[in-house]
């Protein structure tokens, strides 16, 4: 069974007329790295909130359909249960850090679960290592850079030991160096530790290579769902107004005049191979 399953899910926030998401069907398998993208207001954040139960339990509105996370129906389980299966990391680093020191922040989740202190200590050490924050455990949270804060937020969520990591535009407010570091942490969690990753991102040139799958949303509906290479070159994507990586755009232009393999380049290195293979074949 898929680790996350959306069955004809629709949700309209209380007080609004238009549904934020409409008839969403989605299956995510264990260990997948899924990127969700689309223009502002397309329902991405709403979709993520359904995964850990904030919808329907925290955000009020009209919820239709069913969401199953790790076998649990989110209608029948509280957020605090679902949060140990799917950890949600938000966009704003400031609003998801509550404690004064990094160490106490990582302890917060396990403390809420009533775990004994030595187990808490173990989890702190583990999550700190996974997110490269072991060196700043004693630091005060308000002194941290945006990138450090986000990695602390990820560690704090990992301390609950979820098998799914859900991230809502985690690098939005972060500078390039910090962004790379965060995305590298996420990639490693997925590729080395097998964590299922569901991430909303606009910086497609940075995540396409790490992702197994890309889902495009528009006005509350899923309009494309497939491998990044397929989705980024689809008609829908091209007409939609998402940040298609420059190398993909180049590839598409070249494809109009040359015979190219179907392997769409997702990085400059892959593009180099495309060019060299063209050259090798003597194509002009």
């Amino acid at each position: 069974m898929a680790i996350i399953e959306f069955e004809r899910v629709s949700f309209t926030y209380r007080g609004l007329k238009r549904p934020a998401i409409k008839d969403v069907d989605l299956r995510i398998e264990k260990g997948e790295y899924v990127v969700i993208t689309g223009p502002t207001g397309c329902g991405k954040s709403t979709l993520l909130r359904c995964i850990n139960g904030l919808i329907p339990h925290f955000y009020e509105g009209d919820f239709k359909g069913n969401v199953y996370v790790d076998g649990l129906n989110t209608r029948e389980h509280q957020v605090f249960e679902l949060a140990t299966r799917a950890g949600l990391v938000f966009q704003d680093p400031e609003s998801q850090i509550f404690c004064l020191t990094v160490e106490s922040e990582l302890a917060f989740g396990p403390e809420n679960l009533g775990l004994p202190p030595d187990e808490i200590g173990r989890r702190i050490a583990e999550s700190a290592e996974l997110t490269e924050v072991s060196g700043i455990l004693d630091r005060l949270t308000y002194e941290l850079s945006g990138g450090e804060k986000q990695r602390v937020a990820i560690a704090a969520v990992l301390a609950l030991k979820p098998s799914i990591l859900v991230l809502d535009e985690p690098t939005s407010n972060i500078d390039p160096k910090g962004t790379l570091r965060i995305l590298e942490v996420v990639r490693r969690l997925n590729q080395v530790y097998g964590t299922t990753v569901v991430i909303v991102e606009h910086k497609l040139e940075l995540v396409s290579l790490h992702a197994d799958r890309m889902v495009l949303m528009k006005e509350g509906e899923i309009v494309e769902d497939g491998s990044p290479r397929k989705v980024l070159t689809s008609e829908t994507a091209l007409n939609m107004g998402i940040g298609i990586p420059k190398v993909v755009q180049l590839y598409l232009r070249l494809k109009k005049e040359h015979r190219l393999s179907d392997k769409v380049p997702l990085s400059p290195r892959e593009m180099k191979e495309v060019v060299l293979s063209l050259r090798g074949r003597g194509e002009k």
Binding site: L54, Y59, V79, E81, A83, S104, A107, N112
Partner: peptide
């Protein structure tokens, strides 16, 4: 919302590290 997502209120007697 963040606190909910960190299991706030999960058990009656929370522990302290």
């Amino acid at each position: 919302a963040s606190m909910e997502s960190r299991c706030f209120g999960a058990v009656k007697k929370r522990t302290f590290y």
